[in-house]
């Protein structure tokens, strides 16, 4: 089910390509800003915080706040500094389980 977006896209010229976020597929405008496109597609939380595990979403859109962190190919990236490409498989940055030696 596609969530209702709180954003409106003024222009809809660019071709749509499939992008996965957290296992769900979205059709996003190719070449557009990944963070903006995901928010416009209805994504709320991009990452979980590391201590309290609460959701965060893009805050500054200019690469400074690090609240739009996602995982792409196992590497942590800022979604607001990425472009939509076909077939991107994006995971929200999740809280790491804290653990002592025994659990490693």
């Amino acid at each position: 089910m596609k969530p209702v977006s709180r954003f409106e896209e003024l222009e809809s010229g660019a071709p749509r390509v499939p992008v996965r976020f957290g296992g769900q597929e979205y059709q996003l405008a190719e070449g557009s800003n990944l963070a903006a496109a995901l928010m416009a597609a209805g994504v709320d939380a991009f990452r979980q915080t590391s201590h309290r595990g609460v959701g965060r979403a893009p805050f500054c859109m200019m690469g400074a706040c690090f609240d739009c962190l996602v995982l792409v190919n196992g590497e942590t990236r800022q979604a607001c500094l990425m472009e939509v490409e076909t077939g991107l498989d994006v995971q929200p940055a999740r809280r790491m389980r804290e653990g002592p030696y025994a659990s490693r």
Binding site: S50, T76, M96, R97, R104
Partner: peptide, 10 residues
């Protein structure tokens, strides 16, 4: 580094 999944034990 950033916080990572378990990688190093000792």
């Amino acid at each position: 580094t950033e916080k990572l999944a378990p990688l190093i034990r000792r």
